[in-house]
């Protein structure tokens, strides 16, 4: 075989392998096996199987649900699938001082364990910033800006 032909065959083979690998990842069901976090509804749907295992739970902080005791850094809040009123919610307890960006309505990912008392205890609280970058407005944070700052989740 001439080297040119061989090289072109190598190219064809590599492109075929690369393309099918990509298609497999993009359109296969690998996504179901690669779970970074569960949403509250997905975790609750697991029932008892979810208890005890160290997992990540992700969602949005329910407005009005945040209780924080600065003295004992005891933080309690609810995480919901979305901002819809009927979204599934899970109560989260943390003994960690949250990142400064932590606020009502923002997206969070917490690592810890869910237990039978329906409380998710975490010692690793991460804040999930949205892809929006806004200059502060003169009025501080008007109603609209506050609403827009809520993490968009379906």
């Amino acid at each position: 075989m001439k080297p040119e032909t061989r090289n072109r065959l190598i190219a064809l083979g590599a492109i075929l392998v690369a393309g099918s690998a990509l298609a497999w990842i993009a359109f296969g069901n690998i996504g179901e096996n690669l779970v970074y976090y569960w949403k509250p509804s997905e975790m609750v749907a697991q029932g008892q199987k979810a208890y005890g295992a160290t997992v990540r739970l992700g969602g949005v902080v329910v407005p009005g649900s945040v209780l924080f005791n600065t003295e004992h850094t005891a933080l309690t809040f609810q995480v919901a699938d979305s901002h819809k009123g009927d979204a599934v919610k899970v109560t989260v307890k943390s003994e960690q001082t949250p990142p400064q960006m932590f606020r009502e309505g923002i997206g969070v990912v917490v690592e810890g364990a869910f237990s039978a008392d329906q409380v998710f205890r975490t010692n690793r609280l991460m804040v999930n910033h949205s892809n929006e970058y806004r200059a502060p407005t003169d009025g501080g944070m008007p109603d609209e800006a506050w609403k827009n700052s809520l993490t968009k989740a379906e």
């Binding site: 924080f68 005791n69 600065t70 003295e71 933080l75 606020r103 009502e104």
Partner: peptide
């Protein structure tokens, strides 16, 4: 909201979340 029994006082809202 059924406060933690060991620290019923001092519960406050978390500030606004600005770094």
């Amino acid at each position: 909201v059924a406060p933690e029994p060991q620290h019923p006082q001092g519960i406050e809202k978390v500030p606004m979340g600005v770094i």
